[in-house]
Amino acid sequence: MTTDSKRKGIRLPRPLAIFVWAYMVWNLLPVVAAMAFSFNATRSRSQWQGFSTQWWSGTPLSLFDNEEYTAALKHSLELAAMTTVISTVLGTLLALVVTRIRGVAKRPVNFILMIPIVTPELILAVGLYLSLTFITVWPFSVVELGTPAQVVGQVTYTVGFVVVIIRGRIAVLGDGLEAAARDLGAGPIAALVLVLFRLLMPAVLVGAMISFAFSIDNFVITQYLSSDSSTVSIPMYLYTNARGGNTTPALNALATVLVVTTLLAVALASLLYRWATRRESVASDVTGTVALSA
């Protein structure tokens, strides 16, 4: 080995390191600053004028005391709960089935599963909106704009990602364990439940957390399929009020809640995954992260 043991590849001049750290600062500092502004002492969201928690709670306009904010918080959590359950269940079943499909159906099925992932959200949203408003037969007639439509839209958007994550796990496991269980006398369905579901659990949990994070952060679909002000989610509220609107630092507090919730969900997902797969050595950090991201 001729190269430096710590640094791999070609050493580029020092400025590159500075550039990378500058990028990190550029990337993160505004968000940190915006979070900090939720503790501003005055109404301003652009000038720091002292520390206070008045925008978080205690005053009529604060995050936890103003109905507009609490309603958005509650609605976002409701949507996320429903989306997480439905897309995890559907995604797990689909992942199991898709890995078994042979023959002619294989390609079209894979193609359809990829559609929501490679389509701009706006187009998914427009399609769903149009079909819900123009088609009068079941199931389109029973899904009303507002919460039901928003859940349908969010699940449609997230379930593909859940499938990708769980499929990845199934590919690593192979079908050998299931067969081994059967060879030991378990019936096929018992084998599936006992072995596969137990081994798939980490991936299912990751899928659930990812759905949760996607749902909480989702803006385009949620906005397009909303009905009225009772179905406003946190990102929708941020969008309407970011430029003019209800511009107190309570808005920053609301955004902070959004960010912290998402990051907690993702952190939890990756910790759970590591804990559940602690006896296997899985892919490195990078691939792990990207598996979460892809």
Partner: peptide, 9 residues
């Protein structure tokens, strides 16, 4: 308008 015409409200 469109939401009313679509009967979604």
């Amino acid at each position: 308008l469109p939401k009313i015409l679509a009967g979604s409200i």
